[in-house]
Design a protein around this nucleic acid. Structure first.
Lengths: 107, 107
DNA sequence: AAATCGTTTGCGTATTTAGCCAAATACGCT
DNA sequence: AGCGTATTTGGCTAAATACGCAAACGATTT
């Protein structure tokens, strides 16, 4: 296993790791509906505002989200809507079937 | 946020968390080529055999892998090949484009 | 320039995860 | 039964992650 490949695996893993928390998935879900500011996202997450802020930073660091300051507030948005396409497969894992419900989710 | 939704998010997050480690991604990659026994997987991972075994357990626990005992050895296989379809999107996150290289990876 | 609103950061604590080594288990063979 | 190979588990330590509170910061309003 050469170093390049190791780095690639690590980069990929970081993206998955960022998605590996229920609150962060809730954030991604909320942002699937479009840009939201932190205080809006705070309502869909049920955690301290500071915690939400940190979750946002995690998602942004790996490139899943981007942010834009607008006056007093900061708006976040999904940088890669394709992330939402994961769910069909993930759901199939959860159900234990290995087969997505919707074939469109595949390939 | 009701309890059902909370559970769903947690279940999804567990799948992503399981994928959130370079060694485990290396295992998934190796298994994309078909069933492998632990000692074979050990060669593609560069970690103590006991560590590999634990990584396998993590992936199996969330349903990404299944295992089958065959005489002396244990063979693992990918329970949901669709996991491999994530990479196009993940790669786009890494590159920072938000757009998968191959359109087939989407939807 | 003080007060306020929205957001981020510092810090302490609690929990989880990763890793290795050594011991245990499971299987097949003689 | 005893041996060798393949895999898992126990026990420990080190490192990473999650969380809330309080303080800091930046922009806006008064």
């Amino acid at each position: 296993m050469d170093d390049d490949h190791k780095e690639l695996l690590e980069a990929r893993a970081n993206v998955f790791k960022a998605l590996g928390h229920p609150s962060r998935l809730a954030i991604v879900d909320a942002l699937a509906g479009g840009e939201r500011c932190v205080c809006e996202l705070n309502e869909s997450v049920d955690a301290d505002l500071s915690t939400v802020s940190r979750h946002l930073a995690v998602l942004k660091n790996v490139g899943i989200l981007s942010s834009e300051k607008c006056g007093n507030q900061v708006f976040y948005k999904l940088e890669c809507p394709c992330v939402a396409s994961f769910y069909g497969c993930v759901e199939s894992v959860i159900r234990g079937t290995g087969q997505p419900l919707e074939l469109e989710n595949l390939q």
